[in-house]
């Protein structure tokens, strides 16, 4: 028997399979195969079945939710790869371990469970625009070659939890500082905020043993202090996506931090966590229900204050667009 065949195929099976495959090739190349639905009823029927199987999948990647996932996931993947490359880590990445059969990990699951936010996005955008009446709008400049952020973002591109969380607080502090000074906020800073916030949240969820309660409390505080600024920024053309991604990332981060701190508080000294003497209770409660306007969600004070100390180093590389 022909070694190319399985155990039970006959030459007739192969001939029919070759014909079917040839017709599919023609269709996939954009051509019109010579198939008469009356003469080749069986073949025509198989083609319809193949099409019916293919079609639902194509639709699944045309949704708003998929495009949202794509943007967030792309940023996270490239950020993670860059960290690995700069740190000279082994190619195999630390897999995002699943916490259990019923417990999901990662930002993506949270956003999926709260995908109703995408419904409110236009309303949120309108609310943000309305914020112009009450707050001094900050025009976002199109991306330009800015001088490196006068912070330690570059040096914070690699390293453990301390560095990772410091990167978040530094980026958010930069945002707040620009807001106070009336300086524009560009897409690159927003992308840095998105990447660093997402990376830190991912660490909290997938490597909770590597973070301390202090890390997470500071992280939560920095996000809260920046929420008002992010919620009232007016995006220039071409920067809307970066702003929306930063808003989503900080919201996700806030929930992740709240969940972590809530668990810490409920369990006591959490297994594997660095000893934290603090017995502070969570500063906020989990908010699974999304709200309409980003500006209304924030628990920040109206005048956010910078908490990070800037040091004179150059800005870290950001994810390629």
């Amino acid at each position: 028997m022909d070694e190319r065949l399985g155990q039970h195929e006959t030459p007739e099976d192969v001939a029919a399979a070759e014909r079917f495959a040839g017709v599919l090739d023609t269709l996939e190349a954009g051509g019109q195969p010579d198939v008469d639905a009356l003469v080749d009823a069986e073949l025509a029927s198989l083609l319809r079945t193949a099409d019916a199987v293919r079609e639902p999948g194509l639709g699944a990647t045309e949704t708003v939710a998929f495009h949202s996932y794509r943007a967030r996931s792309r940023a996270f993947v490239l950020h993670t790869l860059e960290q690995q490359r700069v740190a000279g880590l082994a190619p195999s990445y630390p897999a995002a371990t699943r916490a259990g059969a019923t417990q999901r990990t990662g930002i993506i699951d949270f956003v999926v469970r709260h995908r109703g936010w995408t419904v409110f996005a236009p309303v949120a955008a309108a609310a943000a625009a309305a914020g112009l009446v009450l707050f001094t709008p900050l025009a976002l400049a199109p991306e330009e070659n800015r001088p490196a952020l006068a912070t330690n973002l570059t040096s914070l591109a690699t390293g453990g939890a301390d560095v990772e969380f410091a990167r978040v607080t530094t980026a958010l502090a930069e945002l707040n500082q620009r807001s106070r000074n009336g300086q524009p906020v560009d897409a690159s800073l927003l992308r840095t905020i998105t990447e660093s916030t997402t990376a830190a949240a991912n660490r909290i969820e997938t490597q909770p043993q590597s973070v301390s309660k202090t890390h997470v409390e500071n992280y939560q505080r920095a996000i809260a202090q920046s929420s008002t600024v992010l919620g009232t920024l007016q995006a220039a053309v071409g920067v809307e996506d970066a702003l929306a991604a930063a808003q989503r990332a900080t919201q996700d981060g806030k929930v992740t931090a709240t969940r972590f701190l809530g668990a810490e508080s409920a369990v006591g000294a959490s297994t594997g966590n660095p000893a934290a003497a603090s017995t502070a209770t969570p500063t906020s409660t989990p908010a699974p229900a999304p709200t309409v306007a980003p500006a209304a969600v924030t628990t920040a004070t109206p005048t956010p204050t910078a908490t990070a100390t800037a040091t004179a180093t150059t800005r870290a590389g950001t994810v390629a667009p």
Binding site: E9, V14, A17, E18, F20, A21
Partner: peptide
């Protein structure tokens, strides 16, 4: 060829 047969 095996793939084509499996596909069919």
């Amino acid at each position: 060829t095996n793939v084509k047969v499996l596909q069919h």
